[in-house]
Design a protein around this nucleic acid. Structure first.
Lengths: 235, 235
DNA sequence: CCAAAAGTGTTAGTAGTACACCCATGA
DNA sequence: TCATGGGTGTACTACTAACACTTTTGG
């Protein structure tokens, strides 16, 4: 068996940036690192790729081991490969971002895994280049959500249009006209109106909608420009 | 010094997909692999990341060593990490794509480096998962070029609007109305009209234009939707 | 003088934006 | 009954798409 001689192997890690939306704010999930070096400092969900493991698999496994999350939206973001990014040992890291419905997992995450949600404006000091990864992920989400319906991944199965609008406004740190917003969203034909109303946030109540999964998959690439100036987005 | 114990390091490679446009067709640069295994089979420009080297650096170095290309547009694409992708040894590969002006390098590439240009429709059998990388890079270019002026990287410093249109038509395998195309392009204010004309492709001659570099940088994120249905694009 | 490609303007339709009032209900 | 948030329609503007003729000039 031929081998590549004279090549130095390096450690390969994956780091997952997990986003959630609590109905008010976009949040990021962090844990206290469980091993040396930098044990007990705040960190993204990270781990090493095993010898016999595909990279996407590794990301899913690490995420599951550290948070119990399975089958969530997970997308490869970028490789971070500065030779000095981890002073312990040369390690390159392949970053992924995940979008989840925060309420579906909130309790499990806190009780079983001691993971904690942080406001974007309120992130503690992170290890290595994790803050840079987070920034990159945020920009990517803003970019992608302008053309693809990924933000639905952050919402529960049933949601109202005002909730959805609130989410978009949070992501783009801006406000939209509710008449235009609702027309735009409904014109995608991606939403199915339910009979039931959410009465929590108003007296009149807002109708629940669910995602039309079939159309969601079909139309994933075809979505509307939600933001006034897509120019400002950086991939 | 703490080290990460019990973690298996793997080899990390970079592979560069180099695109060029000859005025007629989009082409891809390939070389015959210079080492075992798979020596002498057609391959993308690949090499291993050195122990002390940043990933982007590695991609630039490998590209330069194999083709002499320096300072060209080079963007990270995706990590390919199937454990069996390279049967020789577990290697993950970080793919990059480059866009260059084919004529500026054509001679050098053939004479000094024995690299060859291939039509997209006419790619020979490639090693490992290089065909998959190429497909991914093509989709990415189509996606990105719909919103960002990256295709100018494929043209010489001076080019005509019909040339540019021909390029876009090639990339999107479709045709555009020349009146609308020219209006759209000129409305970006990215082009500076020259006094000189290109008389090669017509008797009347077409005016040369150059890119306004300052505006190009400023407007890189703000470009027009060139294709009729961006839906069809997959990131 | 004619073939071949360059260059240019107008109109109609569509999509986006701005804007204000009524509705339902719990307290 | 009133305060709160939900829901809807219309007019204007801007962009996009469709379309045809004139210009230049080398052979």
């Amino acid at each position: 068996m031929i081998k590549y001689l004279d090549q130095t192997p390096v450690l390969v890690a994956v780091d997952c940036i997990v986003f959630g939306f609590d109905g008010q704010d976009l949040k990021v999930l962090l844990i206290k690192r469980g091993f040396e070096s930098e044990r007990d400092r705040w960190s993204l969900m990270g781990g090493f790729v095993k010898f016999d493991e595909d990279i996407d698999q590794a990301a899913n496994r690490v995420l599951e081991q550290l948070t119990g999350l399975e089958g969530v939206y997970l997308e490869q973001l970028k490789v971070f490969g500065d030779p000095n990014r981890d002073p312990t040992e040369r390690t390159i890291s392949i970053s992924y971002f995940a979008l989840i419905d925060i309420h579906q997992y909130e309790k499990q995450l806190n009780d079983d895994y001691h993971a904690e949600w942080f406001l974007i404006k309120d992130i503690p000091q992170l290890i290595f280049d994790h803050q840079e990864m987070l920034n990159k992920a945020l920009r990517k989400i803003r970019y992608k959500a302008a053309f693809h319906p990924i933000l639905f991944e952050l919402l529960p199965e049933k949601f109202t249009i005002p909730q959805l609008q609130y989410l978009y406004e949070g992501i783009y740190d801006s406000t939209f006209d509710k008449r235009n917003f609702s027309r735009k969203i409904l014109s995608t034909k991606l939403l199915i109106k339910q009979l039931e109303k959410d009465k929590d946030s108003s007296k009149k109540g807002a109708f629940y909608y669910t995602l039309d999964k079939t159309r969601y998959i079909d139309k994933f690439q075809a979505f509307l420009n939600f933001i006034p100036n897509p120019e400002s987005l950086i991939d």
